[in-house]
């Protein structure tokens, strides 16, 4: 079953967990809930929302974050748009480099790229699109997939 969700969030970090669970819950009613949805998407979507609120909107409580989610077949696409001016992705350092390993920040985009099938930004840099392909019959129990 295809499904679309469009909503806006206040620029409040406390809203993230509920928004993530809302989207995962709505998508789980349509497709088998597997590890990729439960883990890869949850972490990546959390990162996208946090980046939008902290870096995109600069923690400004008057700004908002728009979310567009589309589940078509087994492809889950989530777009997160902030009201900021964007950023230069070339300036994001590798968080796994020895000189960065003890840095408290800088792992968000890295994790999104590792956990999602596709991640891309618009030219301005204020919108990120996450794409995850959910296996049609992914087993819930991990040992069943071993």
């Amino acid at each position: 079953m295809d499904r679309e969700l469009v909503f806006e969030l206040p620029n409040d970090l406390q809203c993230i967990e509920e928004a993530v669970e809302f989207v995962v819950g709505r998508c789980a009613t349509c497709e088998e809930t597997g590890r990729k949805l439960r883990f890869n998407f949850r972490v990546s979507f959390t990162e996208a929302l946090a980046n939008a609120m902290i870096y995109g909107n600069g923690r400004d409580p008057s700004k908002r974050v728009r979310v567009e989610v589309a589940l078509r077949g087994s492809a889950l696409k989530a777009r997160v748009i902030d009201q900021g001016h964007g950023f230069d992705r070339a300036t994001v350092p590798d968080p796994t480099a020895p000189e960065n390993i003890e840095c408290p920040g800088g792992r968000g985009i890295f994790l999104m790229r590792k956990l999602m099938d596709e991640v891309y930004f618009n030219e301005r840099g204020n919108a990120v699109t996450l794409i995850l392909r959910l296996p049609e019959t992914e087993p819930i129990r991990r040992e069943a997939s071993a």
């Binding site: 920040g105 800088g106 792992r107």
Partner: peptide, 17 residues
């Protein structure tokens, strides 16, 4: 624990240090 994001990892890193 269900999941941890990069901020959660970051706080563990800074606390460890």
């Amino acid at each position: 624990t269900g999941y941890i994001d990069s901020s959660g990892l970051g706080v563990l890193v800074s606390l460890s240090k």
